[in-house]
Write a protein that binds this DNA or RNA. Structure first.
Lengths: 129, 129
DNA sequence: AACACTGTTGATAACGAATCTCATTACGGT
DNA sequence: ACCGTAATGAGATTCGTTATCAACAGTGTT
């Protein structure tokens, strides 16, 4: 009976992730938690984030050689519109793109298609500055 | 008169990149060059690849914490269909996606939209195995 | 062709993100 | 309360990438 246990650390990471606007790095999240008085370890934050991503409770993307994470609505496939400046993130559904990806893959004989689709830009607020 | 100089090292990297099928890491390219008898340094390979990417002669993507590079047709915006197994890569044009990305960005007040779009899958050959 | 100027190279050190180790802790069922 | 074992965490380790800096080599000039 290998069972997954519930620890306050995992919950702390989940909460901290939910409080964060936009994508954050594991290290940033760890610092934030420590600043908040939590004695949580860095390795644990990495593990918790990896788990959350696996379970579909968090999305991740790679930027400048590091992984960034963000809480997301579980069970729904979606993509992100991200502000390069402030990190503000909007979830976007894009059925057209899903179909396109699948079609393009099939067209070239590829199977089991995955895809990475992210849009970066400057949000309205940052555009004015 | 700050001028960029032509060295055999840069040319060697460009050639090695053109010979490679699919995306390769800087380290892999360096090993390949050394195996071929070239005494080129690792740092130089990194610099050359970064330059090529900046000049639009190479595309790069991040996978599992490392940057991969590939020669590409300069001046043309395109995306990639990549085999997870063997690395075979196909350049794909996708005007629909370009428009979609621009539209979605504008819709949410975002300006200067960039986007990352890559499709992964198993190519016909690898699908059979 | 010799020269000087300066961009480039490369061995190595340094850095940083992420993972591994392993003794200790603590969750969860009995 | 007890036990089995998953989870934790401080530190060491791995690994990709970048910085350092003295030696080198393109490039334009004389």
């Amino acid at each position: 009976m290998t069972a997954k246990r519930n620890t306050w650390q995992r919950e702390a990471v989940r909460e901290a992730l939910n409080e964060s606007e936009g994508f954050v790095s594991a290290q940033a999240l760890h610092s934030h938690l420590r600043d908040g008085g939590s004695p949580i370890g860095l390795a644990t934050v990495y593990r918790a984030l990896a788990d959350l991503a696996t379970q579909g409770e968090a999305d991740s993307l790679q930027q400048e050689g590091e992984s960034l994470y963000r809480a997301c609505t579980p069970g729904s496939h979606h993509h992100h519109l991200i502000c390069r400046e402030c990190g503000l993130t909007v979830e976007i559904r894009a059925d057209e793109v899903e179909h396109w990806a699948k079609a393009v893959a099939a067209e070239h004989g590829f199977t089991e298609p995955n895809h990475i689709v992210d849009v970066f830009g400057l949000c309205a607020k940052c555009s004015r500055a």
